[in-house]
């Protein structure tokens, strides 16, 4: 693993909002084949860290690189074209479009067909979009409006849309938030299967501990904006500091 170069790397990134430092001097790397979880109590800066990695926010200092290329100040859309896919914590599908259309839009954007003023979008990439919906188990609901899908289905759609750009690394912000036990399992096995099949490394934020330890190959614990521990699940579980800082309150 150490021989491969990281697909996504942050070096000493810091982001403050006024007097509050949300992310402090964080360094991390995601290597091919890895499934890395970021855990930490509420307000630990997990989503802000994601925003820095995806380009939604720019760090005050530090460096972000993607496939060996420094992208610290690149806007999100450019990073997408370099192979970065992300999902959001709050479900953010296009509510007035159907599930199929949601995925079609993703594919069109990824293929840089944004400014194509001719041809018919509703017929574009139908098969590919349908296949993606199949992967997340939404094939039979592909003509329903996204806004009318159940919460779990919206999250699944979100995943399909994130995959529509054929990302080479996938960032998922709490993919199972708000799901019931069964839904969570289903969603995770899906992500796992897709990650394995397409060999996409995954970096994900998660609250649910059982999820993290059954799924991740590596765990990064973020507390108060700083990396506390970074290692294999078993190592993290055994770490005294983690127990104190984190498990003490939620386990």
């Amino acid at each position: 693993m150490s021989l491969a170069s990281p697909v996504l790397e942050a070096k000493g990134v810091t982001k403050s909002f006024g007097a509050f430092t949300a992310v402090r001097n964080v360094s991390l790397a995601v290597y091919p084949q890895e499934v890395v979880a970021i855990i930490g109590p509420n307000g630990a800066g997990k989503t802000t860290l994601f925003d820095l990695l995806t380009g939604r926010k720019a760090p005050d200092s530090g460096e972000v690189s993607l496939f060996g290329r420094v992208v610290t100040h690149e806007p999100p859309w450019r990073r997408v074209h370099r192979g970065l896919g992300r999902s959001f914590q709050v479900s953010s599908v296009f509510p007035t479009l159907t599930a199929l259309e949601n995925v079609q839009i993703g594919i069109l954007l990824a293929r840089k067909q944004t400014f194509q003023l001719f041809g018919q979008a509703s017929l574009a990439h139908r098969a590919q979009a349908a296949a993606l919906l199949d992967q997340v188990g939404l094939r039979d609901r592909m003509d329903r409006l996204a806004g009318e899908l159940s919460y779990g289905d919206q999250r699944a759609l979100e995943l399909a849309v994130a995959l529509s750009s054929r990302p080479k690394v996938l960032l998922l912000d709490e993919p199972t938030a708000g799901m019931g036990g069964e839904e969570t399992d289903e969603c995770l096995s899906r992500v796992k299967a897709i990650a394995a099949a397409e060999s996409i490394p995954v970096l994900f934020i998660e609250h649910d501990m059982s999820v993290v330890f059954s799924f991740a190959t590596r765990v990064i614990v973020l507390v108060a904006g700083e990396v506390l521990v970074n290692g294999a699940p078993a190592v993290v579980r055994a770490d005294e500091r983690v127990r104190e800082a984190y498990f003490g309150e939620s386990f």
Binding site: V80, T96, I105, T114, F118, A124
Partner: peptide
């Protein structure tokens, strides 16, 4: 135009500009 990829993406943009940006559109 509205039926074209551009038109479809324009609609999507109206719904959720941030998501369009996170999918590779400016």
């Amino acid at each position: 135009i509205l039926a074209s990829p551009f038109g479809a993406i324009l609609r999507a943009l109206r719904d959720n500009p941030e998501r369009v940006a996170s999918l590779g559109g400016h």
